[in-house]
């Protein structure tokens, strides 16, 4: 075969392929960075350089248009999957001391004899967020609200990791196990209700969502109703109100009774 040089302007293939490719790049770039921005009616272009920058994807600062502020206190906690991931034993110890004042309602082992939430083995992010919200006033409760203002951020972390550290015990009033109702395993797609289990365990856990097995049915019903009618609004961006509003009274009943009847052991064993 003749030893023709490939990367040389004398080679027709080289000239043609590089020429066509370069022409296409230039042509499409002109179209994309100049023609297109000027053709976009919703884009107010401030000159050629601005047109090129916007088409290239240089981010703009978010619009400073004034936003409507809430008339009520919303949660100001920043939730991430990494929060409170590695508690120190010191922190747990301090939490144990602090928790003595909580035992009257939440039980010495973190399992309530009243209809207060069981906290033993609960996710730390959940407990921390609710304490923060009680303190800020995003969530109010006649019993809890007076306690929270005295807690520092570190106190709340300590309490959260201490209760998380406690073993998950069966509730005091376990009823007979009920089979999972449809709302828990399938939700109601057309009403925008995902399965309860996709956030609250069973399927998966969403950061900030508690696991619910063995909680008091009365407590869960009350909270769902409070979310539904807007009495409780500390869920970030309405994530729980969206669901509770769409649930029927019967579904609230079924879901609460189901979770109340579930032992925590099976829940942890399933994972």
């Amino acid at each position: 075969m003749p030893t023709e040089r490939l990367f040389s302007t004398a080679n027709r293939w080289f000239r043609l392929s590089v020429g066509i490719t370069a022409a296409l790049v230039i042509l499409t770039a002109l179209g994309g960075f100049i023609l297109l921005p000027y053709a976009q009616s919703d884009l107010k272009v401030a000159g050629l350089w601005d047109a090129i920058c916007s088409a290239a994807g240089i981010p703009k600062l978010t619009s400073s248009a004034s936003s409507v502020q809430p008339t009520f206190k919303t949660s100001d906690v920043i939730m991430t999957s990494a929060m409170l991931a590695n508690p120190s034993s010191e922190s747990i110890g301090r939490g144990a001391t602090l928790a003595q004042q909580c035992a009257i309602c939440h039980g010495p082992t973190g399992v309530s004899r009243a209809d207060s939430p069981n906290l033993a083995g609960q996710y730390p992010a959940v407990i921390f967020k609710q304490l923060k919200d009680f303190k800020s006033g995003a969530r109010t409760n006649a019993v809890m609200s007076p306690f929270a203002p005295h807690l520092t951020d570190q106190d709340m972390v300590d309490l959260a990791v201490y209760y998380h550290y406690l073993p998950r015990l069966p509730a005091y009033h376990p009823t007979q196990k009920i089979p999972a109702p449809r709302i828990v395993i399938n939700g109601a797609p057309m009403r925008g209700i995902a399965p309860c289990g996709s956030c609250h365990g069973g399927l998966d856990n969403k950061t900030g969502s508690p696991w619910l097995e063995g909680q008091s049915a009365a407590y869960m019903k009350a909270q769902l109703r409070a979310f539904a009618d807007g009495a409780r609004r500390n869920d970030i961006s309405q994530q729980m109100r969206n669901i509770a509003r769409a649930m029927t009274a019967e579904e609230i009943e079924e879901a609460a009774n189901y979770y109340a009847s579930q032992p925590p052991d099976e829940y942890s064993a399933a994972r």
Binding site: L43, S67, V68, Q69
Partner: peptide, 22 residues
């Protein structure tokens, strides 16, 4: 037309995506 950014963890604290502004 333009790329705009927003921090997903603080949408509820301030800016145009606070719940009362949705």
């Amino acid at each position: 037309a333009r790329v705009e950014t927003a921090d997903p963890t603080t949408l509820h604290l301030s800016g145009e995506f606070v719940e009362s502004n949705l």
